[in-house]
Design a protein around this nucleic acid. Structure first.
Length: 399
DNA sequence: TTAGGGTTAG
C-alpha cells in the first residue's frame, strides 16, 4: 500500500495537511474540503486514501475550497504554508484568488492579486481576465469592463466565449442594450459559436431592457433553427412577458415548453400565477395553482411572498394578509422578504406601530434587515405624515 | 484544481 510519504516525500502533504488542520480548527483531523455539487463538505482521509496528485494541485483544491467558504484569510494562510513548504503556486492558484477577491471584496482587490502573480513571474491568462470582467460587471463598471477587454487584447490574450458573454451581460445589466447586442455580433464575427449562456443572457437582457418583442423574435429564430433551449430560457421569456402583462403570450410559451419535452417547474408556475393575480384574473390563478398541485409542487416561501406581493400591488391588502396567515400556518421558515412584505401591508394600512414592532421581531429572530426594510419603514412614517419620526429613524439607521 | 449567463417574492 502506498502511503502519503511515498508519494509526497518526507514533509509535503503531511505539513500542508497540518496547516489545514490549524486553519480548520480541532474539529477535523487531517481533513480536506471537497466541493460537491456546489457545496463544501469535510472529509477525513487516511494516509492510504490520499490522492496521488501533485502538491500544487492539492494546494489549489484547498485554496479553492476556502475561497468558496469566503475564507480568504485562510486561503492566504494555506498559500503561505504551501510556499514555505516549497509547493509553488501556479496560474490556477492565483486565478482562484483573483476570482474570490473580485467576488467577495471587489475588483481592485482582484487586480492587486494580478499584480502579485506578475511579481511571482506568472502571466495572467484568459481566465484571470474573465474573473476581473465578472467582478467589474458585478460592480456595475461597464467602462472598466471595456478597458479590461482592451488590456487583454494588448497582452495578446484572446477573449473566449466566456469573456464575450460576461461583457454582454455587463452591458445589458447597466442599460446599454445596443452595446450588448454589438458584443453578441462580435461573438459571431470572431468565429465563436454562441452557447446557451449567450442566448439566455441575450434573451434576458432584451426582456429586462424593454425589448420583449425582439426577445420573442430571437426565440422563434432559435426554434426555427432547432437550437436546443433550456427550461430556464422558457422561464426567462415567460417572466419577460408576464412583467409587461402579456399573459396570453406567456401561456403560449408555457404550452411550447411542454411540447418541447420540458415539464414546467415551480418557478414557471409562480411567475404566471403572479401575473394572473396582478391582472386580477383570480380564476386563472386558481387553475394554475391546481395544475401546480397536481404536478406535486407545493407552495414555498417564494410562492407565498410572490402572491402576497401581487395583492399588495393591486391594493387588496386583506387578501395579502390571508396569504400571510396561510404562510404562517404552513410552518415555512419566515425570511426577511416575508417580514418586509408584511411590514409594507401594515404601513399601507396606516399601522406604523405594528410595522415597527415587526422590525423588533426581525431582530429577535436573528434576521438581518435590508434596504427594503428601511425603505418601507421610512416610507410608512412619511405616509403617516410623521416626517420628524422619519428623519429620526433615518438618522438612527445612519448612526 | 481556476472563469461566464439565466427564471419566481418585498
Amino acid at each position: 500500500m502506498i502511503s502519503a510519504l511515498d508519494i509526497y516525500g518526507p514533509f509535503g502533504l503531511r505539513l500542508i495537511w497540518g496547516g489545514l488542520q490549524t486553519c480548520l480548527g480541532d474539529s477535523f483531523s487531517r481533513g480536506v474540503w471537497h466541493r460537491q455539487r456546489g457545496r463544501c463538505q469535510a472529509r477525513v482521509m487516511d494516509d492510504h486514501r490520499m490522492p496521488r496528485k501533485l502538491p500544487t494541485r492539492l494546494l489549489n483544491i484547498c485554496i479553492s475550497s476556502f475561497c468558496k467558504l469566503h475564507g480568504l484569510d485562510k486561503a492566504e494562510a494555506v498559500l503561505i504554508d504551501g510556499i514555505r513548504l516549497g509547493v509553488l503556486p501556479n496560474v490556477v492558484t492565483y486565478n482562484t484568488l483573483v476570482a474570490a477577491y473580485c467576488r467577495f471584496v471587489g475588483i481592485d482587490a482582484g487586480y492587486s492579486v494580478v499584480h502579485r502573480m506578475q511579481v511571482a513571474g506568472i502571466r495572467p491568462n484568459v481566465i484571470t481576465y474573465n474573473s476581473l470582467l465578472a467582478g467589474a460587471s458585478r460592480q456595475g463598471q461597464a467602462s472598466i469592463s471595456l478597458d479590461l477587454f482592451e488590456e487583454m487584447l494588448k497582452l495578446g490574450i484572446s477573449p473566449n466565449l466566456c469573456s464575450y458573454n460576461t461583457l454582454m451581460h455587463c452591458f445589458f445589466r447597466f442599460g446599454k442594450p445596443d452595446e450588448a447586442y454589438r458584443v453578441f455580433h462580435d461573438i459571431i464575427l470572431s468565429g465563436l459559436r454562441p452557447d446557451p449562456t449567450s442566448f439566455n443572457t441575450l434573451i434576458n437582457g432584451l426582456c429586462k431592457n424593454g425589448y420583449v418583442d425582439n426577445a420573442l423574435m430571437l426565440y422563434r429564430n432559435l426554434k426555427r433553427h432547432q437550437c436546443q433551449l433550456e427550461l430556464v430560457t422558457y422561464n426567462i421569456l415567460i417572466d419577460g412577458m408576464c412583467k409587461v402583462g402579456r399573459l396570453k403570450t406567456a401561456r403560449w410559451i408555457l404550452h411550447e415548453l411542454g411540447t418541447s419535452g420540458y415539464v414546467p417547474d415551480a418557478i414557471t408556475y409562480t411567475t404566471i400565477m403572479k401575473c394572473c393575480f396582478r391582472l386580477r384574473k383570480f380564476e386563472e390563478a386558481s387553475e394554475i395553482f391546481s395544475e401546480m398541485k397536481s404536478r406535486g409542487y407545493t407552495f414555498d416561501g417564494f410562492a407565498y411572498c410572490t402572491v402576497m406581493g401581487a395583492f399588495v400591488k393591486t391594493g387588496e391588502l386583506r387578501r395579502a394578509v390571508d396569504v400571510a396567515k396561510a404562510m404562517l400556518k404552513s410552518g415555512i421558515k419566515l425570511d426577511i422578504v416575508f417580514y418586509n412584505t408584511l411590514m409594507n401591508i401594515y404601513c399601507k394600512e396606516g399601522k406604523v406601530d405594528a410595522a415597527f414592532a415587526l422590525l423588533n421581531e426581525i431582530e429577535e429572530k436573528g434576521l438581518e434587515c435590508n434596504d427594503y426594510s428601511y425603505t418601507i419603514s421610512i416610507n410608512g412614517l412619511c405616509k403617516a405624515r410623521n416626517i420628524e419620526g422619519a428623519q429620526r429613524h433615518l438618522q438612527y439607521l445612519c448612526s
